[in-house]
Write a protein that binds this DNA or RNA. Structure first.
Lengths: 244, 244
DNA sequence: CGTGCTTATGGTCAGATTTACCTTAATGAC
DNA sequence: GTCATTAAGGTAAATCTGACCATAAGCACG
């Protein structure tokens, strides 16, 4: 960390803190939802925000994110996909002072959501669409963070197998397709989708059983495969969308 | 920023600082190179590291990155592509205390490199390969940061038009291809590469002139186009590689 | 039992794209 | 003028995609 030779100062001054904020997505009822909380403390008390909190002394960033995730959702360890999204550090983004927030993106299947031992008042799932169209304003710069997280998730679906992280195992091809449809916000052709998924080695692994639905033919069940990346990618822009 | 109800503390304690580190890539002589400095201060004094420095009071992260970029390379403003890469915050990554570093990735054409008014001792270009094979050890966790930056750059070449950011305007299709070859570390088929670039609307714009090379047929000259993303992507994995 | 409804799964076919080449063009060196 | 060299453009086979159609396998009726 080289410093400028103009000796302004050796350390940043005043109140400085590092926090993590979480964009936790899941798909329920065919819609993409995000976990939001009602803030119990100032500032923005009573308003809606992303879950998060300060990084503790001696705690790694990833560990802080995983801890907050556990505190907010009761989900332990590695059952959720968790990745760093972006760092937000504009001065003035938090009235308490200079707070640098490292945002994380978490993806998981429909969660039990025990509003576990946190004081974060009510945590609840909210459709992402209701934030995008301005019905649900968010505190701080959290709407920007959410939009960045959404764009990351949409992009990741094209190039990686994380869509399977949204699915409770075992799952059907239709379950997986509904993830894409919910996150991308557009219907896909079931037949073409299945072909691309099946042809990608290691995306899903058949377990040899079927699930009886309420109505319709039983569907084969799968588990997540070992592959992490999709080559070729599953493009949202060019085609693949359903016509019916 | 919800806090845990167990009232450990309202603010992180002890020495905490936020820094930016820069992974600045260019291509010279057909090889991918990164800008490194010899550290003039403790810790790791005299060792090789990525350029960077502390974020100042009231300074946005992007602004800090751009300032450091200017201080290290003398490059002003927007002539370089600059994007946030990742935040690194493991406790113990810096012996001075808890230092969170926001890494940025910068890409640019072969730079003038006036070792402008910085005390950062000698800044110099180093082939990325010499770090990857362990010939040039880096201070802190900078080798990890560099590897992450390299992977980001390689991936960005597939999906975006940033390869053009490596080229001094005007440039030829062959110039552009050499960027891909240097960053991906593999030769490409000139004919197929040209076809994909030309077919992607807004990747490059012909300026109607030609450049006379030392040897061979003159090549048409281009400027950067308006498009930012490549659809379809230019895949490194599947095909496109040269056979000769 | 048979008909109809629904969803899963698999197939088809025209068109686009990709890959691995080959051919021609334009220049300087000799 | 011939040769070496690089740019630029073309081509045929293989592959992939997009838009469908057809069949399969269950359930709910009557």
């Amino acid at each position: 960390m080289a410093m400028s030779n103009t000796v302004h100062r050796r350390r940043p001054p005043t109140s400085l803190a590092v926090a993590v904020d979480l964009v936790i997505f899941t798909v329920r009822g065919g819609r993409l939802q995000v976990l939001l909380i009602e803030r119990g403390n100032m500032p923005y008390r009573g308003e809606t925000a992303l879950p998060g909190g300060f990084v503790r002394d001696g705690e790694a960033l990833d560990a802080a994110a995983r801890r907050e995730l556990r505190e907010e959702t009761g989900v332990v360890g590695d059952s959720l996909h968790l990745e760093q999204l972006h760092a937000y550090g504009d001065p003035g983004r938090d009235p308490r002072g200079r707070i640098i927030s490292i945002a994380y993106l978490a993806l998981g299947p429909d969660l039990p959501m025990p509003q576990a031992g946190t004081d974060a008042s009510a945590a609840h799932w909210t459709p992402v669409s209701s934030i995008l169209d301005g019905q649900t304003p968010l505190a701080f710069d959290h709407e920007k963070i959410l939009r960045d997280g959404l764009e990351r998730a949409r992009s990741q679906l094209e190039h990686t197998t994380i869509a399977a992280a949204f699915c409770k195992e075992p799952f059907t091809i239709a379950d997986l397709r509904q993830i894409y449809e919910a996150v991308w916000g557009a219907p896909l052709d079931p037949s073409n989708f299945r072909r691309k998924v099946m042809k990608t080695q290691g995306f899903v692994m058949p377990i040899g059983e079927r699930r009886l639905p309420d109505v319709g033919r039983p569907a084969a069940l799968f588990r997540r495969g070992l592959a992490a990346t999709l080559t070729p990618p599953l493009t949202r822009s060019g085609g693949m969308s359903a016509s019916r």
